[in-house]
Each structure stands twice: as C-alpha cells, then as structure tokens.
Amino acid sequence: MSSPASPRSRALETAYVVHVQSGSRIQGALASAPLFVAVAELDGKSQVPDFARAMRTLAQTHHVLLSPSRARRPFVVVEPTYLPVTHKRALVDAVFDTFQTACEVAFVPAPVCAALAAATENALVIELDAGTTTVTPVCAFYELPFVARTSTRAVEDVALARTPAELDEIYFARADDHDDDGELPLDELAARVLFALPIDVRAAAAAHVVFAGPAAGIAGLRALALARIRTAVAARQPFHRAVEGGNAVLAVRGVATLGAVAGAALYLGRADAGAASLAGCFTGRGAVVDRAGWEASGRRTVPDWACPA
C-alpha cells in the first residue's frame, strides 16, 4: 500500500512557477514539469506592465489551471533583482484575479534559482535581459543585492542574430574613460561586483559564473564574456593583493544552468517535508502572500527586500 504524499511532494506537484524577466517577458511552467514553459511578452514601455494580460496568455497555454475543480494551487514568482514594489502588487493582483485556484504567491530571487539550477550554492549570476544586464552574487543560496550592479549595456532584441563584433560593441566597448555606473561594460561590471565581495566569498563566486536571462542563449556571448571578465579581473588583482595580502590567483569559470524556472522547482523539492504551504518552503518575512492576507491588506502588502518588514 502506497503512503500518502508528503506536503513537500504535493507542493512540487501543484505549484505553478512564474518567471519575470526584467519587464520584457514572463515564463510560466508547472513545478513538476519545469521544461514545459509557456511565454508571454510584456510591453517594456509601460510604467507598470500588463501582468493581467500576461497571466491570461499563460492560462491559455496551461488551461488546466483555470478549472474550478482543481485543488488549491500555490504560485511561485521568480523575480529579477530590482523588481519594483508596484510591479509586485500588479503581479499578485493578476495572479489572484486570473487563477481562481491560486491560494498563495511566494517571491524568490531569480539569481538564487539560477544558481540552484547550476548545482552551486555560491555563484556570480549575470542576468542578460533585453535592455539591462545585472550582476548579482549569491552566497550559500542567499542573494546579495547590496553588492549587485546593473548596466544598460544590453541587446534590445534577443531574437536577432549577432556577430562577434556586434556583441563586442554592445557589451564591452569603452565609450570613454569615465563610463557612467549604469553604462559600464559587462566585464567591468562583473569585476567590480567580485572585488566588492569579502575574500572568502569572492573565490567561490568567481569559480561559478552563471549566465541567465533571454540573451544568455546568444551564440558566442558567454565565451566572449568569460574571456573579457578574466582579463578585467587579472588587471585588478595586483592592487587587491597589495591591499589585502596573499598571492592567490582568482580563477573565473563558467557553469551551465537549467534556468531559473527549473531552479524554483528544485527549491521546492528541497523544502522541508513538514511544510504545509509555501510559507514553510520559502524563508524570509513577507516572502509569501496568501489570498486572505492580500485582501485584508487592501491589496498592498508584498515583500520589499530593500525595506524588509
């Protein structure tokens, strides 16, 4: 006689994962089948994207979620490093209004999920989105947003084929000797983030560089980026050796990832078997919003990592 399913396996079977990619598009998939991904495009020019329309697009692909006969279904939102609170509110609204079976929404950082899907707890995650590039360190499965940096050096249309020369111009060319912080080349951005980390964390992050986001699949970009990052790191090492001591060489290595959606499913799979809801799977105050609490707060309470509750 088979034993009843544990709360952990029920969460993994029923949860739906929504990945917001820096305002350009949304991916959705069942946690139990993370490679069957539906995609909904967002209007990047709107101040607040039309998440309701995106949810309806995902619902049309995974239409079984709309069936009133289905059991209560938790949602997991994989969010980019700097998702505004106004976007989070609109997103929770869209989930609860579109999916009547939705019972709660958990927010988890995309860099952590990307690292988990790369089988590493420490990483330097480079999110290559349409319009922005963000570099975020992850330490022991915790995002370090206070060190993360974002640049506008990025492709606008990830569907277009790019030559090595075009990629070099977009991501690595120096405009002048005084690049604005928000316009830093990718290699300089990554080097600054690495050397802002404590020494013991720095080496582990550099040894696990993870490329994520829609532009990560552009042919030749990851190899070119790794080569340029190694050069930028090597140029900075003599100064840091003189200040910090030691003579170890900082090794920069890339690692493959299955993607943030798969990482969120793996996160659920690692959750405590005693968890009766997503609140037991994901740590952090305010990380989970349930339907009743959402209505009681006037549809306003969402996690804000910059201003924790």
Score class of each variant (00 low, 15 high):
residue 279 A to P: 05
residue 82 Y to L: 09
residue 151 S to E: 06
residue 291 R to E: 02
residue 88 K to E: 11
residue 63 H to F: 15
residue 213 G to N: 05
residue 74 P to F: 11
residue 171 Y to R: 08
residue 26 I to Q: 14
residue 33 A to C: 10
residue 270 R to V: 03
residue 270 R to C: 06
residue 218 I to L: 14
residue 113 C to W: 03
residue 183 E to W: 02
residue 69 S to M: 12
residue 274 G to Q: 14
residue 193 V to S: 10
residue 293 G to H: 01
residue 181 D to G: 00
residue 92 V to M: 03
residue 193 V to L: 03
residue 308 P to R: 07
residue 22 S to G: 04
residue 173 A to L: 04
residue 99 F to M: 00
residue 34 P to K: 02
residue 101 T to H: 06
residue 103 C to A: 14
residue 25 R to Q: 14
residue 168 D to Y: 02
residue 263 G to F: 01
residue 73 R to Y: 05
residue 107 F to C: 11
residue 16 Y to K: 05
residue 196 A to N: 15
residue 89 R to V: 14
residue 260 A to M: 01
residue 100 Q to N: 15
residue 224 L to Q: 14
residue 160 L to N: 08
residue 268 L to N: 00
residue 62 H to K: 11
residue 150 T to H: 11
residue 58 L to Y: 09
residue 294 W to E: 10
residue 105 V to G: 13
residue 117 A to Q: 03
residue 211 F to I: 00
residue 273 A to Q: 14
residue 124 L to D: 10
residue 29 A to R: 04
residue 37 V to C: 05
residue 178 H to R: 10
residue 197 L to V: 04
residue 104 E to Y: 02
residue 243 V to I: 12
residue 93 D to I: 00
residue 171 Y to L: 11
residue 4 P to H: 02
residue 160 L to H: 10
residue 127 E to Y: 05
residue 272 D to Y: 04
residue 233 V to Q: 09
residue 51 F to R: 04
residue 141 F to E: 09
residue 99 F to L: 08
residue 216 A to R: 05
residue 126 I to T: 14
residue 139 C to G: 12
residue 93 D to C: 01
residue 219 A to W: 00
residue 152 T to F: 15
residue 106 A to Y: 10
residue 31 A to E: 04
residue 229 I to S: 06
residue 92 V to T: 13
residue 51 F to L: 07
residue 228 R to N: 09
residue 208 H to C: 11
residue 12 L to A: 15
residue 46 S to W: 01
residue 68 P to E: 07
residue 280 G to A: 06
residue 130 A to E: 15
residue 47 Q to C: 02
residue 184 L to M: 12
residue 119 A to L: 15
residue 89 R to D: 07
residue 272 D to Q: 06
residue 98 T to N: 03
residue 142 Y to F: 08
residue 60 Q to K: 05
residue 104 E to C: 07
residue 247 N to S: 15
residue 239 F to K: 07
residue 91 L to A: 08
residue 227 A to Q: 12
residue 164 P to Q: 05
residue 146 F to Q: 13
residue 251 A to I: 11
residue 133 T to S: 13
residue 28 G to V: 05
residue 230 R to W: 10
residue 271 A to P: 03
residue 264 A to F: 03
residue 126 I to G: 12
residue 137 P to G: 09
residue 130 A to Y: 07
residue 298 G to A: 06
residue 41 E to Q: 13
residue 209 V to T: 10
residue 156 E to K: 09
residue 192 R to A: 11
residue 166 E to P: 09
